[in-house]
Structures are given as C-alpha cells and as structure tokens.
Amino acid sequence: MIDESRPIFLQIAERIENDIVEATLAEEAQVPSTNEFAAFYRINPATAAKGVNRLVEDGILYKRRGIGMFVAAGARDRLRARRREEFARQYVQPLVQEARKLGIGIKQLTDMIESTYTATQDTTEGSVAQ
C-alpha cells in the first residue's frame, strides 16, 4: 500500500488528490482525520498530518475549526488541470520511448491507443469523461 522508499506524506497527499479527481471524495465532503489516516495506513500520525497539511496549504482542502478537514470547492477542476499538464511528460513520453525501442510505428501506436480508448470507454466514462 505504502511505498517505503518515498516520503509517505507525499503519498498520502497523492491518494487524497486521487480520490478527489476520481470524485470518490466529493467537493465539500469531509476527509478522514489524520489519526484515522494513520491507523488505516499504519503510519505515524505526524506523517499523516504533514500530508493533509500540504493539501491545506495548496488550497485543495480547508479546515473547519473543531470539526475537521473538507474538500474545497473547485478542487477537482484544479487538480485535473494540473494533471493534464503533466500527462504528456508522465505518460506519453515513456510510451513513445518504449514504442520506439520495440519498433512500433506511429500509425500502429495511434491505432492501439484508439482501440484501447474505445474498448475501455464504457467502464471508465462515468467519472472521467466530461
């Protein structure tokens, strides 16, 4: 679950972000407390708090004094915009690199992407497509 070789607070922040992007965590929904995160992922509570606070500083979550943490309005759109910017570098670049290595041409590659995109459309569209 937790990858031992990267800062855990970053992983906690990423997981919460992911839940927001996938709309598992709706805007204005309450997120679990740091102690709940700590118990669930079996990590130090201070580490969990660091991950959550990172999102608070980033404006993705906000604090209601004495109640807890909530997902900010507009958080999902902001996260999706940010991820689109990183998409080419994170996913397309390694994909093209590997395709070149294997001698897969551009036409073949786009065909593969197209058929995969169509085949999986129904299962993922609900939360991803606009």
């Binding site: 102690n35 700590a38 118990a39 079996r42 990590i43 130090n44 509570p45």
Partner: peptide
C-alpha cells in the same frame, strides 16, 4: 503491538 502503539500514541 504496532497497531495499538500507533492508536494509543495518537490518543
């Protein structure tokens, strides 16, 4: 032990 340690430390 680990679970109780974390839980009790948090509380």
């Amino acid at each position: 032990f680990y679970d109780r340690l974390l839980e009790d430390f948090a509380a």
